[in-house]
Amino acid sequence: MAPRTTPTARQQRLGAELRKLRDRSGMSAREAGALLGGDQARISNIETGRTPVSAERVQTLARNYDCPDESLIAALAAMTGERRDGWWEEYRGILSPGLLDLAELEHHSVHLRTAQTASLPGLLQTHDHARVVFQQGVPALPPPEVEHRVSFRIKRQAVLYQESPPPYEAVIHEAALRMQFGGPAVTKAQLRHILEMSERDCVTIRVIPFTAGAYPGSGQTIFYSHGPVQQLDTVQLDQSHGTVLLDAEAQLAKYRTLLHRMEAVALTLDESRKFIHSIARDL
Rank of each mutant, 00 (worst) to 15 (best):
A140W: 06
E31L: 12
F223L: 12
K188N: 05
P139L: 12
C202I: 04
P216F: 02
R192F: 00
L61E: 06
S71F: 02
A9M: 11
G38C: 11
Q12W: 04
L269V: 14
A118D: 10
S272W: 04
V244D: 08
H173S: 14
A9Q: 12
E263R: 14
L123V: 11
T221D: 06
F134K: 00
A32T: 14
P166G: 11
L237E: 01
C67H: 01
T6I: 08
L100D: 00
C202A: 15
T221P: 01
Q12R: 15
Y91P: 01
E199K: 07
G217I: 01
V133E: 14
S240F: 12
A280G: 10
A266M: 04
A175R: 09
T204D: 08
K155P: 02
Q135W: 03
R178E: 08
D85Q: 10
R261V: 00
R273P: 08
V265K: 11
R113I: 08
V53M: 09
D66K: 13
L160H: 06
Y91S: 06
S218F: 09
V244W: 02
L237T: 07
G98M: 03
R178N: 13
G26M: 05
Q162R: 15
N45Y: 03
V58G: 04
F134A: 06
A62S: 14
M197D: 05
R24T: 04
E106H: 02
F152L: 06
F181E: 02
G122A: 14
E196N: 10
R273D: 03
L124F: 13
T204L: 06
R19A: 14
T8L: 04
L259D: 02
L95M: 03
L35H: 04
E90D: 05
S96D: 10
L95T: 00
R131A: 07
A77H: 01
P144G: 11
D69F: 06
A176K: 09
M179G: 01
I43Y: 03
P228K: 11
P142A: 06
R153C: 11
P121Y: 13
A16D: 04
A130C: 01
K155M: 15
K254H: 14
T211Q: 13
P209M: 01
R84A: 04
H241Q: 10
H241R: 11
Q157H: 04
A2I: 14
